[in-house]
Simulated scan of single mutants.
Amino acid sequence: MKNSAMIEACLACFAACEMCATECIKMISADHLRCIALCRDCAEICALCIKLEQRDSEFSHDVMQLCVESCTACAAECEKFAAHHDHCRECAEVCRKCASECQAA
């Protein structure tokens, strides 16, 4: 499969971001609103990366660059809560890996 490492990283990031957003929503804390928003955006961009890569879209590379930016922003926000919430720590780690794979692709 073409760019299989990037696709695997995007799948893992999608799942981690969805879980993190869900757990942050359950906390009902205004402190986590940006984390929730970035996780949701990041998950959607990761899914789009996978779709465009699979169909060999001419826009795949452009969306991968957006994914790098989205994953980096999401990781930075999740890292603010990483010491207190495992889901935020795990999400930040997975986002960093996804950004790296999309950058390399």
Rank of each mutant, 00 (worst) to 15 (best):
A15K: 12
L52N: 04
K97Y: 02
I45N: 02
C39K: 07
I45H: 01
R34P: 04
C98M: 10
Q54V: 10
A21P: 06
C74R: 00
C35T: 02
A76R: 07
C102V: 03
M19R: 10
I28T: 14
E79V: 08
E93C: 14
E53V: 15
A99W: 05
C78G: 03
H85R: 10
C20S: 15
C102P: 05
A75N: 03
I25W: 07
L48N: 14
K80P: 02
T72K: 00
A16V: 08
A73R: 01
C98G: 12
N3H: 02
R89L: 08
D31A: 07
H87L: 09
K80M: 04
C17T: 09
R34W: 12
L52G: 03
K97V: 06
D56S: 15
H85I: 09
A73Y: 03
A12D: 07
K2Y: 03
E44P: 08
R89W: 03
A104G: 11
Q65C: 10
R55G: 05
C35E: 01
E77Y: 00
C46L: 09
E79T: 09
S29E: 08
H61W: 02
C98I: 11
I45D: 01
C46W: 13
C39R: 09
K2Q: 11
M19Y: 10
M64G: 07
L48S: 15
E58R: 13
E58P: 15
A92T: 07
A105R: 01
C39W: 02
E90V: 13
C10R: 05
A21F: 06
F14V: 07
D56K: 15
E101P: 01
E18T: 12
C49K: 10
R55S: 10
H32Y: 03
D62G: 10
A82T: 09
D56F: 13
M6K: 00
A9T: 00
A76C: 02
S60T: 00
E23A: 05
E18D: 14
H87R: 04
M27R: 13
S100W: 03
M19N: 12
I7V: 06
L33M: 15
R55E: 06
K51P: 12
K51W: 11
D86H: 12
A99D: 07
R34Q: 11
M64R: 13
R55M: 07
V68S: 05
D86S: 13
H85P: 15
K80T: 04
L33D: 10
R89H: 05
E93R: 15
E53A: 14
E58V: 09
Q103C: 08
C13G: 09
